[in-house]
Design a binder for these strands. Structure first.
Length: 191
DNA sequence: CCCTGATTCGC
DNA sequence: GCGAATCAGG
């Protein structure tokens, strides 16, 4: 694959939206995240807000392992947050990066696990304690995507535990999902 | 271990 | 210009 205009456009868009390099790579296909990062740097859009701060720290360190490559630039990140502080006290400052992701995240079928066997529910409940309670943006291919709570409220999150290989859910959530689905199929309600 | 971006350098 | 290998960090 080559960097056609279209692909570069997608890259720019997604990178601007705060998507990770690996996500972009998957979206584009045929490239690795390294390729994406490399391209990002070549395009010069690695850091979004860079003023006159090319003051390279005079690092004259002695490399313990000068085997070959190097990577120890303690490049300071002067994120100039120029916000017209209108509000009195705003403790929550939204990071420049990381916007809202469209809706291309894999969403699970239905959380409707109203009538599942108590065992499975208990099992899942127990795991809830350990659940990572991830937000939609934090989901990856290896995090359990079982939703908890009401999407319309703040009390909404995803399990986030490591998924079973090849499955979108972790084991306990998978059990609930399966039972829910089989029950639905059988139209049977094991009280 | 999973992930993130950053950098180098042979191609 | 490209991106794998590598590094550094969360």
């Amino acid at each position: 694959m080559s960097w056609t205009d279209e692909r570069v456009e997608i890259l720019k868009k997604m990178w601007g939206e705060g998507q990770s390099a690996s996500q972009i790579a998957k979206e584009l296909g045929g490239v690795t995240r390294n390729a994406v990062i490399g391209k990002v740097h070549r395009l010069g859009l690695s850091n979004r807000a860079e003023k006159t701060a090319t003051t390279k720290a005079p690092k004259a360190d002695a490399k313990p392992k000068p085997a070959r490559k190097a990577a120890e630039p303690k490049a300071p990140k002067p994120e100039a947050e120029a916000k017209p502080a209108a509000a009195p006290a705003s403790k929550e400052v939204v990071p420049a990066r990381r916007k809202i992701i469209p809706a291309n995240q894999p969403l699970p079928p239905q959380p409707s696990a109203n009538e599942v066997s108590p065992e499975a529910l208990a099992s899942q409940r127990e795991v809830q304690k350990k659940a990572l309670k991830l937000s939609l943006m934090e989901l990856t291919e290896r995090t359990c995507k079982w939703p908890f709570g009401d999407p319309a409220t703040d009390d909404f999150w995803f399990c986030g535990l490591p998924t079973e290989p090849g499955k979108p859910y972790c084991k306990p959530c998978l059990e609930v999902a399966n039972q829910s689905v089989s029950m639905r199929r059988d139209r049977r309600r094991p009280r």
